[in-house]
Amino acid sequence: MTLYARITGTGSHLPARRLTNDDMAALLAQRGLQTSDEWIVERTGIRTRHFAADGEMASDLALQASLQALAAAGRQPHEVDLIVVATSTPDMVFPSTATILQRKLHEAAQAQGGHGPIGAAAFDVQAVCTGFIYALTVADALIRTGTARCALVVGAEVFSRILNFDDRTTCVLFGDGAGAVVLEATEHDGSGPGVLATDIHADGRHTGILCVPGTVAGGQVLGDPLLRMDGQAVFKLAVGVLEETARTTLAKAGMTETDLDWLVPHQANIRIMQSTARKLKLPMERVVVTVDQHGNTSAASIPLALDHAVRAGRIQPGQLLMLEGVGGGFTWGSALVRY
């Protein structure tokens, strides 16, 4: 028997403020820029997105998603012994958003007469839109080695804070949100539920095609703190590496694309998802798509899409899922999961 990390619960959360493409068009018109619902949908598949309220942080979104995931898993916060948060929009420079989430989970548990995961290891992972795959891979490895038994893996973003609203080609793409899963140790012969294989990569030669080239120095912002993207370069790289990483992960598990029940991709652009599905010979009916409702929520997009499909009853126990994403860095990766 082999030790695996099994997903026992999922959760997600979106900020209350919802903006349609018409809302974005009106916002941009105030800046003398033009766009339209038709233009955005045709190029991206996005129809709406959610923006966080003033003062609403990544950890606040992560908390709500985490509480949902814990409830779905039938676990209490104090049972968690590992917290990994994937985010490119942390609450502060340090400490990690994961430790802030840990405190908020403890406070939420105390309000119910319990206590939270104080003492659990907690840290952030930064791989932009591939962040959740990286975080899942790390948590899976720690569970397989026996370092952890019950992990909370979260993707949480407030990308609305780093968007350049004078760039109509990028500001319409992104939204805020959070998704979470509970991973628990389980033993079986390889035919049961769990993370069966993962694959993660990066190529730092392409840092400039998707980046926020700013930092804090001497109490001031140094550089540009807003998102920049070369959309054509990202698209060209993404469609190639997504097929490659999916096939690599399947090969590690001794499987092929014909074994897959669902593709749960990073929700960046419907065209990228359609291209990947074609390469893997999967009909779009077996691809989980939420980009139309959420936009690109970066590290939150995969767990958000996963949770929505689980709660809608589309993803069922025993089915085989391919989770994959690409992001700034340039990073990419995938995870094969028996749900």
Rank of each mutant, 00 (worst) to 15 (best):
G74E: 08
A16N: 10
L152T: 10
G318Q: 09
C150H: 15
D124Y: 06
G223W: 02
Q64P: 04
A141V: 00
T147N: 06
E243G: 11
M284D: 00
A58K: 04
C150L: 05
E184K: 04
A5Y: 03
E79S: 14
R278V: 03
V288D: 00
E42C: 04
T249L: 04
R314I: 07
V239D: 01
T10G: 08
T245V: 15
L250G: 10
V85G: 05
D140F: 01
V84R: 10
V221G: 12
R271Y: 00
A109G: 13
Q232E: 14
P213T: 00
D60L: 07
E184H: 09
G119V: 02
T147D: 07
L320D: 12
G175T: 00
G179A: 03
D292E: 12
A197H: 10
M24F: 02
M1P: 15
T297R: 10
P265S: 02
G254W: 13
E324V: 13
C129V: 02
G175F: 04
Q220H: 14
R17H: 13
D140V: 00
S59N: 08
V182F: 09
A335S: 15
D81I: 02
L196F: 07
A53H: 11
L320E: 10
I100D: 01
A309Q: 11
L323H: 12
S160R: 05
M273P: 03
V41F: 11
G74H: 07
H78I: 14
Q34R: 13
T297W: 14
A238W: 12
V80A: 04
M57K: 13
G318M: 07
L250P: 15
D124P: 14
L3G: 01
E243M: 05
L282I: 02
R144P: 10
A127Y: 08
I133W: 09
